[in-house]
Amino acid sequence: MTTVTSPIAGRAIGLAAVPDPVFSGAMVGPGTAIDPVRKASEAVAPVDGIVVSLHPHAFVVVDDEGHGVLTHLGIDTVQLNGQGFELLVSKGDTVRRGDAIVRWNPTEVEAAGKSAVCPIVALEATAEALSSIAEGIDVEPGDKLFSWK
């Protein structure tokens, strides 16, 4: 069982509230989403593992059980070409839960006309594999978002 924790501070709002049909329809996978606190901050690793994918706007950490967790910082933020994001690790790095991965500012994302909402997705998982999914609560980095069996 993998416990996935919040990479950022904000309000867990659930995937259905994400303003992107790919995420809201759970096409990428099940999980939840966070409406972030509007201040510059660091997005941290939601699990212990290896950074297998790393972009300014998104990263995937795979744990020892092979579970890949996608953190997507904002919606359509790939279009910002890295502006407003600072990578703090490299692809292939081993990280511990809570290690800083990307520095970003949700206010700058919104100023650029993008949504700051952040999907946190269990890649290649079924909805039945997740339990205790956080929704409708405020979270801090390290707070539990869901369990993955």
Score class of each variant (00 low, 15 high):
Met1Arg: 12
Met1Glu: 07
Met1Trp: 11
Thr2Asn: 11
Thr2Arg: 14
Thr2Phe: 02
Thr2Ala: 13
Thr3Leu: 10
Val4Thr: 09
Thr5Ala: 06
Pro7Glu: 02
Pro7Ile: 00
Ile8Phe: 01
Ile8Gln: 04
Ile8Ala: 01
Ala9Met: 07
Gly10Leu: 05
Gly10Met: 07
Gly10Ile: 01
Arg11His: 11
Ala12Glu: 04
Ala12Gln: 07
Ala12Arg: 06
Ala12Tyr: 08
Ile13Ser: 02
Ile13His: 05
Gly14Met: 08
Ala16His: 14
Ala16Asp: 15
Val18Leu: 06
Pro19Arg: 07
Asp20Lys: 09
Asp20Thr: 12
Pro21Lys: 12
Pro21Leu: 02
Pro21Asp: 08
Val22Gln: 04
Phe23Ile: 06
Ser24Pro: 08
Ser24Trp: 02
Ala26His: 14
Val28Gln: 07
Pro30Glu: 07
Thr32Tyr: 09
Ala33Ser: 13
Pro36Tyr: 02
Val37Trp: 00
Arg38Ile: 13
Arg38Asp: 12
Arg38His: 08
Lys39Ala: 15
Ala40Val: 04
Ser41Leu: 04
Glu42Lys: 12
Ala45Val: 05
Pro46Ile: 00
Pro46Gly: 02
Pro46Ala: 00
Asp48Ser: 11
Gly49Thr: 06
Gly49Glu: 10
Ile50Gln: 15
Ile50Met: 14
Ile50Glu: 15
Val51Asn: 06
Ser53Lys: 14
Ser53Ala: 15
Ser53Cys: 08
Leu54Asn: 10
His55Cys: 11
His57Arg: 06
Ala58Gln: 09
Phe59Thr: 08
Phe59Arg: 05
Val61Lys: 05
Asp64Phe: 00
Gly66Glu: 10
Leu70Val: 11
Thr71Asp: 10
Thr71Phe: 00
Leu73Thr: 07
Leu80Ile: 07
Asn81Arg: 14
Gly82Asn: 05
Gly82Leu: 11
Gly82Thr: 05
Gln83Thr: 15
Glu86Gln: 15
Glu86Asn: 08
Leu87Cys: 14
Leu88Cys: 03
Leu88Met: 10
Ser90Arg: 13
Lys91Asp: 11
Gly92His: 03
Asp93Lys: 04
Thr94Cys: 08
Thr94His: 13
Val95Arg: 04
Arg96Leu: 14
Arg96Val: 10
Gly98Asn: 02
Gly98Trp: 00
Ala100Ile: 06
Ile101Trp: 00
Ile101Ser: 02
Arg103Thr: 06
Arg103Ile: 01
Trp104Thr: 04
Pro106Asn: 00
Thr107Ile: 13
Val109Ser: 00
Val109Leu: 13
Ala111Leu: 12
Ala112Gln: 12
Ser115Phe: 07
Ala116Asp: 12
Val117Trp: 09
Val117Phe: 04
Ile120Leu: 12
Ile120Val: 15
Val121Cys: 09
Val121Trp: 04
Ala122Ser: 14
Glu124Tyr: 13
Glu124Ile: 09
Ala125Asn: 04
Thr126Val: 00
Glu128Met: 02
Leu130Gln: 11
Ser131Cys: 07
Ser132Leu: 13
Ser132Met: 12
Ser132Trp: 03
Ile133Phe: 11
Ala134Val: 01
Ala134Ile: 03
Glu135Asp: 14
Gly136Asn: 11
Val139Asn: 06
Glu140Ile: 02
Pro141Val: 03
Gly142His: 01
Gly142Leu: 03
Gly142Ala: 03
Lys144Trp: 01
Leu145Val: 07
Phe146Arg: 09
Lys149Thr: 14
